[in-house]
Design a protein around this nucleic acid. Sequence first.
RNA 1: UGCCCGAUAGUAUAAAGGUAGUACAACGGUUUUUGGUACCGUUUGUCUAGGUUCGAAUCCUGGUCGGGCAACCA
Length: 559
Amino acid sequence: MSEERSLNFLEEIVEEDLRTGKHAGRVLTRFPPEPNGYLHIGHAKSICLNFGLALKYGGKTNLRFDDTNPVKEDIEYVDSIKEDVKWLGFEWANELYASDYFDKLYDFAVILIKKGLAYVDDSSAEEIAAQKGTPTEAGTANQFRSRSVAENLALFADMKAGKYPDGAKVLRAKVDLASPNMHLRDPLMYRIKHAHHHRTGDTWCLYPMYDFAHGQSDAIEQITHSICTLEFIPHRDLYNWFIEQLEIFPSKQYEFARLNLNYTVMSKRKLLQLVTEGHVEDWDDPRMPTISGLRRRGYTPASIRDFCDRIGVAKRENMIDVSLLEFCIREDLNKTAWRRMAVLDPIKMVITNYPEGETETMSGENNPEVEGGEGGRDIPFGRELWIEREDFMEEPPKKFFRLGVGLSVRLKSAYIVTCNSFVKDIEGNVTEIHCTYLPESKSGADTSELKVKGTIHWVSVAHAKTAEVRLYDRLFQVEDPSNEDNDFKEYLNPHSLQILSNAYIENDLATAIPGKGYQFIRKGYFTLDKHSTADKLVFNRTVTLKDSWKAPQPPKGGA
RNA sequence: UGCCCGAUAGUAUAAAGGUAGUACAACGGUUUUUGGUACCGUUUGUCUAGGUUCGAAUCCUGGUCGGGCAACCA
């Protein structure tokens, strides 16, 4: 670690606090998701930030579920969030819930009422909105604002006791109806909801709003650095106001710009829509930017952490290129994935001078990136092979280093072959390619002294297993679907999923390990899908290999 | 037309008044039994107008542009 990495603005704040002895050198952050949906790559940024910051400075991080709105939340989401955070490789110090603090929060509210800083308002939502004024006009007080402390206390107790229906009354903080910050115009603290909560059941019919739960929860846990996204900046004044009036632990809120990735959407609402309307299979569809989707797609925790590290942290709105995410997973998988051969779009090759009925065994290393290759496996070879349809051309252009009549290639880990002829069916489709091989060119024992430009992958017809291979492409056709004129779903990529049901794979792949990444040589990185079975192997393509080969452009028209 | 954030290559992110750097992308080359990897190289940038200063991406002022704020959501 000789390279001095520059600090992001949050690290600078923490280091400054450490330098000045604030909180006696203690660093405690929290990751506070609302359990109302699955985590996505944007949350991963926040997770890496919160856990990473604590890790770097010897602190800890709490996992806190911000579960103050029972109608949107569910235990299903709690479980998936815990799984995803763990999978990413982080350990929380405490598993906590805002709902654990409902009693304390209620007491806090009573304190504010007693100080004359909160009141029960009987107005409707519409009336309250109207009375808040506009950004350019001050709000106006109503008659409830001057209720006595005693009356407020009694009313608030009745609210808790369930004496009023939903929406009949709210508790509001008495701050400043003329504030230029709309959030300070007597914000709501509590609303009545006769709803079942996934943890507190039917104990409460009164639930705190975000602004009267989040900062208080931070203070209760003595969070030193409460990190959230930019849209909470206007809430900060209120966050501080409650803490000051309550005289509780002075947690501080800091804001960073959320992650935006191009060619996808990131809002829970939109992701939910994709699921419920059947545009994708589920939350963990490999095309989804969810953590579970990326996992099923074959992304590794390390690659996602690396990505979060590389995108940096700042306060400027951003739109990250997916190519960076793809770079991160390629870089990881290149070092760890075992190499195998798989023919996705097969065409038969017959080696006419290879003895009929004979087979032999070639050997291939598992990983050329590692010294020793991490061992190897046997690859059966024979007279008939499956090769990739696109590796043969009837009329090959210049610099096509693959097969065409008269052209030679190396069969990976095997022999050099030369194409002599091919067979077509009545419709003119090429159905078979005939080659001859050079016996003295065997891989590892090549005495032919022949150099060929191209090497192609293959699978023995007699030994191959079949598999279904799913190729994924970006979910949307435009960079920023949420920012287009029409509904975001109109920009879905109709070709985001391509299923190849007739792929041939090396027999060794029949025992592929779930969760492990494999490189199908020349084709990309793949991993077993969760629906794969011994009878029907299913592979997902995580990402393609970088491919710098471009077919020659046809001459431009317009003579 | 109130308040609050922000503005550095195509995309991100550094440079705390002193050489505008790094990564991804793009392009070119070397190596290669993966048109992969590795390695080398190239192109491209401080929103704008003033001011302060020996010196400004950085500090100040005005403007422009982008984003946020008036949910009984978080």
